[in-house]
């Protein structure tokens, strides 16, 4: 069953003199439970693609179905709801809120879902446990190492029980050993929980954790490679 289906997706940015075409005619489908890596040189449109998939940005043209719903033209509030219910984000810079401890950061998506405090805390602790940080729940981001911060971010994505986790260069700010540990975590979530992962990276080694690599060039899909 297709979780993501992109049909003829284009994205143009109006900047300065003319329009910049970041994506043109992207056709891509991702099945439930897949682990897809998107690669490409900088400026190839991979982050734009991830933003469109993550409902953070709307395509200029084309159709996008997420779990069978047509989401390319829904309202801003509806997009917020979709992100909250279906999509977990993991960023290169972790994007944790500095004022909150690990638990508070992980709770955040559940707050916007309107879940009560006790339930929120229970689920957040569970998620932190799953990424091996049960002894760090009251540490603030500044008191955690890069790898630990990224684990908190992953726990924050996990707590939503998402269908899809989108990761934008998740190992970009980490050393290679920590990076590999993070990738193994993604792999584990993918195989054990069946969470679909779509990851953008320019690191060939990291990309190989996925089972399919989609290569972009100048806003178009150049080639797809399946890893055996």
């Amino acid at each position: 069953m297709e979780l993501l289906e992109l049909k003829g997706i284009s994205k143009e940015y109006r900047s300065g003199k003319g329009a910049v075409k970041a994506l043109s005619d992207i056709n891509l489908s991702v099945k439930r439970g897949e682990f897809v890596s998107i690669m490409g040189p900088s400026g190839s449109g991979k982050s734009t693609l991830l933003n469109v998939i993550g409902c953070l940005d709307r395509p200029s043209a084309g159709e996008y179905f997420l779990d069978g719903m047509k989401v390319d033209r829904v309202s801003d509030d509806k997009l917020s709801e979709i992100r909250n219910r279906y999509i977990g984000f993991v960023f290169q810079n972790f994007h944790l809120l500095q004022g909150l401890d690990a638990l508070g950061n992980v709770e955040l998506p559940l707050i916007y879902r309107g879940i009560g405090s006790a339930e929120r805390k229970r689920r957040a602790k569970e998620a932190l446990d799953a990424v091996g940080l049960s002894d760090r729940i009251h540490h603030r981001p500044s008191e955690l190492s890069g790898g630990e911060q990224q684990r908190v971010a992953i726990a924050r994505a996990l707590v939503q029980e998402p269908l899809l986790v989108l990761a934008d260069e998740p190992t970009g700010s980490l050393d290679s050993r920590t990076g590999r540990a993070i990738m193994e975590l993604f792999q584990k979530l993918n195989t054990e929980r069946g969470i679909t992962v779509v990851m953008v990276t320019h690191d060939r080694d990291m990309a190989r954790y996925g089972r399919r690599i989609v290569r972009l060039l100048d806003g178009r899909i150049k080639e797809e490679e399946f890893i055996g």
Partner: peptide, 16 residues
């Protein structure tokens, strides 16, 4: 701004 972005990504609506 970054915080606002994160909150939006995690599901905060404009109204929130």
């Amino acid at each position: 701004t970054a915080e606002i972005g994160v909150r939006r990504a995690l599901g905060a609506k404009k109204f929130d």
